[in-house]
Design a protein around this nucleic acid. Sequence first.
DNA 1: CTATGGCACGGATT
DNA 2: AATCCGTGCCATAG
Length: 478
Amino acid sequence: MLIRQIQSVDVRPTTTAHLAQTMALLELSALELHEKIEAELSSNPALELIEGRFCPTCQRPLIDTILCPICSHPKNSSKEEPIVFISPREEFTPYASFDEDQGLSFEETSAEFEDLPIYVLRQIAPELEETDRPIAAHILTSLDKDGLLRTPLIEIALYHHVPLSRVEKVQKIIQYADPLGVGSSDPKQALLVQLDVLSQTHSIPPLAQRAIEEGWELLLHNLHAEIAKKLAIPVAKVKEIATFIGKNLNPYPARANWGEVHQPTTPYREAYYTPDVIISLLNGDENAPLVVEIIFPMSGKLRVNPLFREGLREAPPAKLEQWQRDLERATLLVKCIQQRNHAIVRLMQILVKQQRDFILKGDAYLNPLTRASLAQELEVHESTISRAVSGKTAQLPSGKIIPLSKFFDRSLHIRTELQAIIANESQPLTDLEIVELLKARGFRVARRTVAKYRAMEGILPAHIRSKIKYQKMTAAIS
DNA sequence: CTATGGCACGGATT
DNA sequence: AATCCGTGCCATAG
């Protein structure tokens, strides 16, 4: 990478290098930024990370302010104006935002089970190719009450006209989402996934994997002796494995208490579900302002080392040039990071204000919004918004983590309405009938479009749905 | 004949 | 300039 000369690094030297790097940084997620800074810190002596301060009242890490924005925020706050600030953290545990009271009464506490597909889908959305979404939706809506996928993969592949490997790929992503092993084709698979994840943080009994792979059926019926023979190990060992499995693994993912509480934080989840911003409701009060924390992946404050700057004067001639370059790099980085932060703060301020209903009440209340219109409002270039939004995720007050781009989904509110219609239908409705119903609710879309939305949500066509219903009825009886 | 998926086009969005 | 998304037309399955 080329480094242009910058003579004076004061407030507004909008050099090309400056601009370019600001843009580049804007695009990075918190996680990626973390890596970038780490790399820079270790290679550039001019940059230093000084210990951060903490808010004296709530112990929240701070960057510049004396009190954290929440503590210093007076009661005269209106619910329209969100509190937005940068929150420096080294590490972040999902679902551990500061609104302690999880008893927030959000929408349906009743229909927990109904939510599993959506819950999983939201987690994996950031990793999914756009074209894979219908497949994921299909898999998730086909889960049985144990969270297992009894539909043969090949059937799904045929339905979507994609190779079996694609479906397998999607299934794999799903399996590693929250109720670990969800979407597996059978308990055996689910166990193996869990074992795999567990093995990364804990030590597991040797041969446990083989025991499951080769002897799951035997294990089920407590035929320990048989397995011992098969694996050529003592029966005692087998019993050990069996108890380990019983204690730590769960062949029926959906029966685990997914959501809210998670004890084992797997490295995998952490990597993927660390949000870039956390949105919560002050005191969990419906009318309170929203609190938006933008995660800055370092605790402490990043700055140019003043000692280094001093030392530059007495630099040995041989090193002078190198040191100057280091100094410039450091200053540039700090400045660009500030700009990145500033840009995101402004973006979130507007975004959260306009999408308050969506954040609080769910998908149906999403305000169709374009990046272009926001760009106009903020008086920045559209590409700036695009970069700021791309590849980042937000955690909502409900604990769900969604990609930031969802705020700009043009059709989500219609799709949710469509889901509602399907959920309430007494008999399978044809696409054309759905068009009419949507029109009655104020959404004008073409018949063809309804079909597409259906596919996106993994809802099967009317004539197939009728069969499913029938199957469900019979299944319920048996 | 009806319901639905595929392909492709054009305008909007990024 | 590249991509995404809604739609119309046509083929096909039931």
